[in-house]
């Protein structure tokens, strides 16, 4: 059976120690100023005006309907059968059309490679049977990674045992495969994804050029198919007329 990789993050166990962030930097040599993963510390007001905190570790959410893949013109962004969204660095042009397409801000142009980088769930590690670097190092064991299609896996068990939320909102739901347990508390609005504003060229391509082109091509083809049909019909009736003439 095909694997379905998911990441679980237990916010009640996360302590914002950033071990995941540094382990990731060490594993992939991410240049300073960029990171493939993060921990979001949301300060809130609890009951009675008391302070409250929510800690949400995050990274690429490896969405089922990854908008980055959909917005990539080079064929560099792709998704494997097991759900892992990856970048083919040989193909990536660095045009960044995918960067604002991501509602989780998970992608960035890597100045060292000139291509777009992001979390890969540590693809070479998981393919070799190791956990992603962030999961292996997580001090509170807040991060759990695994195959949700394997009923014996830890993630399958946890998905059943606890209540899990995903970072989706009314406007944005692209099927993220990153789950959060918050101990029954709702996710704070500032942690939820906002609709993205893609690059103007991407929008023009999607909303103007392609529809226009589609309409133009179909229209033009339609006209000439019709013309051809008419010609055919005319000729047939001509032939009939002529044949009829013979009979006459």
């Amino acid at each position: 059976m095909t694997k379905k990789y998911v990441m679980l993050a237990d916010a009640t166990r996360c302590i914002n120690c950033k071990a995941c962030v540094i382990a990731c930097r060490a594993e992939w040599g991410t240049p300073l100023g960029h990171s493939r993963d993060w921990v979001r510390e949301v300060e809130m007001e609890g009951p009675g005006g008391m302070p409250d905190l929510m800690l949400l570790p995050g990274r690429c959410q490896h969405c089922d309907d990854a908008p980055c893949v959909e917005s990539c013109p080079s064929g560099a962004a792709y998704q494997r059968e097991d759900g892992v969204v990856l970048v083919d660095h040989e193909l990536c042009s660095g045009c960044e059309l995918c960067v604002p397409a991501c509602p989780y801000d998970a992608r960035f142009l890597n100045p060292e490679t000139g291509t777009v980088s992001k979390c890969t769930f540590c693809q070479p590690r998981i393919d070799a049977g190791q956990p992603p670097a962030c999961v292996g190092t997580c001090v509170g064991r807040a991060l759990v990674f695994g195959d949700a299609n394997d009923p014996a896996s830890e993630v399958s068990r946890l998905l059943q045992e606890k209540e899990w939320l995903r970072l989706t909102s009314d406007g944005v739901n692209v099927g993220p495969n990153h789950y959060y347990h918050t101990g029954g508390r709702p996710l704070p609005p500032e942690a939820l994804p906002k609709p993205t504003t893609p690059h103007v060229q991407g929008r023009l391509l999607e909303e103007v050029v392609n529809p226009l082109a589609g309409a133009g091509l179909l229209g033009m083809a339609g006209v000439f198919v019709a013309a051809g049909m008419k010609k055919l019909l005319d000729r047939r009736s001509e032939v009939q007329r002529q044949e009829g003439g013979h009979h006459d």
């Binding site: 013109p73 042009s93 660095g94 045009c95 960044e96 059309l97 142009l109 890597n110 100045p111 060292e112 000139g114 690059h199 060229q201 991407g202 023009l204 391509l205 050029v209 392609n210 226009l212 082109a213 133009g216 091509l217 033009m220 083809a221 000439f224």
Partner: peptide, 30 residues
């Protein structure tokens, strides 16, 4: 591209021009 955002900006415009023009010509070819 990472050194100057203009390169990417130009790339994206080029992409649009490339695709749009191909379509226009293609329509005319019918």
């Amino acid at each position: 591209f990472a050194a100057n955002p203009l390169y990417g900006e130009l790339f994206r415009w080029a992409l649009m021009v490339h695709a749009g023009t191909v379509f226009a010509v293609l329509t005319g070819l019918i």
